[in-house]
């Protein structure tokens, strides 16, 4: 077996720095209104992109289950405002779809 310590440490560093630097450097700065507005869009654009990525990069046999889960979770969350209920129902639906597909 190889030793992966160097690889792990390198990966840890390049993963940690992008997580740390903006938060650390910007947290006590007064930032302009436009920049703040730009940052305030990021949660929406990121989530939308992550959802799309989940669907278009899903394995073929999980595509329908993923789509079903994503739509059901969105609908239930809109109706009930309960994150956990929405996610658990989506997992249930994905499992059922997976049984048949």
């Amino acid at each position: 077996m190889n030793n992966y310590l160097v690889l792990v440490l390198g990966m840890a560093l390049v993963t940690y720095l992008p997580r740390l630097l903006p938060l650390y450097l910007l947290s006590d700065k007064t930032i302009g209104r436009r920049f703040a507005r730009f940052l305030s869009y990021i949660p929406y654009t990121s989530l939308s992109i992550l959802i799309v990525r989940g669907v278009i990069s899903a394995d073929k046999d999980m595509l329908l289950a993923s789509l079903g889960g994503i739509f059901l979770a969105g609908y239930l969350s809109y109706k009930t405002n309960s994150l956990i209920l929405s996610v658990l129902s989506a997992i249930g639906l994905a499992f059922v779809i997976k049984l048949f597909v």
Partner: peptide, 20 residues
């Protein structure tokens, strides 16, 4: 199949957060 379905839960969570 259960493991894969539980993994769908993460995308479901993104959707549950964003949709409302």
């Amino acid at each position: 199949s259960l493991q894969a379905s539980m993994g769908v839960g993460l995308y479901a969570m993104f959707s549950a957060l964003l949709t409302p």
